[in-house]
Simulated assay, not measured.
Amino acid sequence: MAKDEDGGHEPAAEPSFNDPNDPRWSQNPHAAPPRNPYLDMPLDAPPVAGAPNGRGYGFAGQDAGQRAGAQPGHPQQHPPQGYPQPGYPMPVQQPAGALAIVSLVTGIIAVLTGGMLILPQIAAVICGHLALKREPHMRGIAIAGLVTGYLMLGFILLGTLFLITVFSASMGSW
């Protein structure tokens, strides 16, 4: 093996690009990639037997209905829009969890207002309890809304009791 200027080793036998048995000989590095067969498929049409393109799919409109044996002028019937096509599963969507989010937001509003408003605390508590029953996947957010709501309700209750005792003590001294 011979060393070149960099100190690297040259391979013992370099491949011959003139040899037709070499697998690299017939590959064109600038060749176009193969065409995607799914590019011609419509995205919103179900498969139709006997489609004009010969591949078994196409728009199931009036022409396809006539080829499938339907009466002329009457398009083929399709399933309603909200239902999946045969062979395709319906995507599963996680429920939004609006009650838990409302509970948390109103609890945060109650904390930011220092408990001076009574409605955010009540809304946080009610929505938090409803969210625990109806939205089990949002349990953490519902509990956070409940904690902030009850905490601020407790502060209002303690503040009210404090004001009553101070007022009654000051009235008793007269």
Rank of each mutant, 00 (worst) to 15 (best):
L130I: 09
M138E: 15
S173R: 11
A142D: 08
M138W: 07
V147N: 07
T113Y: 02
G69R: 04
F59V: 06
S170D: 11
G149I: 05
M41T: 12
L112I: 03
N28T: 10
L130R: 07
G8F: 15
A100C: 06
Q27R: 05
F162P: 01
G61W: 01
S173A: 08
A49W: 08
P80Y: 00
I156C: 09
F17T: 04
P89H: 05
A60L: 07
P37Y: 15
G114V: 06
D44N: 08
Y150M: 15
H78M: 01
F167Y: 14
D4K: 05
L146F: 10
G149M: 06
I141A: 10
N21W: 08
I156G: 06
P20S: 09
A12V: 11
E14S: 07
R134I: 02
I126S: 06
I109G: 01
A51S: 15
G154S: 03
I143A: 02
P29W: 07
V147T: 06
T113W: 09
L132N: 03
S26L: 10
C127M: 09
A32G: 12
P120H: 02
S103L: 09
G73Q: 08
G145D: 09
H137C: 01
Q76F: 00
G73K: 08
D44G: 08
L39A: 15
L39H: 14
L163R: 10
R35P: 11
G145P: 03
P37H: 05
G107C: 03
V92W: 01
H78V: 00
G7P: 06
A70E: 13
G154E: 02
A144D: 04
G154A: 07
G114H: 03
A64T: 02
A45N: 00
H129E: 10
T106F: 15
G69T: 03
V111T: 06
L119T: 14
A124G: 14
R35D: 15
Q94H: 12
V102M: 13
V125L: 09
N21D: 12
K133D: 07
A49V: 09
Q93D: 01
V92Y: 07
D19Y: 11
A142C: 02
A144Y: 00
G58R: 08
F17M: 15
G7I: 09
D19E: 07
Y38P: 01
V166Q: 05
A2W: 08
R24S: 15
P72H: 00
A142Q: 02
S168Y: 12
A49K: 06
P20L: 11
A96I: 14
A45F: 00
P52L: 10
L130T: 02
V105M: 12
Q62K: 08
V111H: 09
D40P: 05
Q27D: 11
P91Y: 00
N21F: 05
A123N: 06
G128Y: 08
D63E: 13
N28I: 04
E10G: 11
P89E: 13
G159N: 14
T148Q: 04
A124E: 07
Q27G: 11
A31W: 06
I108N: 05
P75K: 04
Y38V: 03
T160I: 08
I109Y: 10
E135K: 03
